[in-house]
Amino acid sequence: MTNHQPNTDLTNNPIPVGVLGFGGLGQAAARVLTPKQEMCWVAAADQKGYIYSPEGLDPDLCIRTYRDRGSVADIEPGGTHSTQSIIDLINHAPLVKGYFLALPNLPNTFMASVAQAFINSGWQGVLVDALKRTSAVEQLLELQEELKAAGITYMTGCGATPGLLTAAAAIAAQSYAEIHSVNITFGVGIANWEAYRATIREDIAHLPGYNVETARAMTDAEVEALLDKTNGLLKLENMEHADDIMLELAGICSRDRVTVGGIVDTRNPKKPLSTNVQVTGRTFEGKISTHTFTLGDETSMAANVCGPAFGYLKAGVKLHQRGIYGLFTAAEVMPQFVR
Score class of each variant (00 low, 15 high):
M218I: 08
I200V: 14
L165A: 07
E146I: 02
Y176N: 04
P208V: 04
T156M: 05
T156G: 06
Q174C: 03
L141M: 13
G125W: 00
I190G: 03
A169M: 07
V223Y: 11
E138F: 12
V182W: 04
V128G: 01
L140F: 04
A177P: 02
A221K: 10
T153I: 05
G151A: 08
A160K: 00
A150G: 09
P208S: 06
L165R: 02
T134W: 06
A205P: 04
A177S: 13
A215S: 15
T166I: 12
E145F: 03
L164T: 11
T214Y: 05
Y176P: 04
E142R: 14
I152E: 03
T166W: 10
T185M: 06
H180E: 15
R133A: 12
V137I: 15
L127I: 12
S135E: 13
L140D: 02
A173Q: 05
I184P: 03
A198K: 03
L164W: 11
A215E: 05
G159T: 08
D129I: 07
A191S: 14
R201A: 08
W193R: 01
I179L: 07
L165C: 10
I184F: 06
L226S: 07
T161V: 15
T161D: 12
E178I: 06
H180N: 14
E213L: 13
E213I: 11
A149Y: 10
N183Y: 01
I152R: 06
M155T: 10
I184Q: 08
A167Y: 13
V128E: 01
Q139R: 15
A149C: 07
E142P: 06
L143Q: 13
A136C: 13
E202R: 09
D203Q: 10
L227R: 03
T185G: 06
D203V: 09
E178H: 15
L147E: 02
E202F: 07
A169F: 12
L143F: 03
A130G: 12
E145L: 09
N192M: 00
E202Y: 06
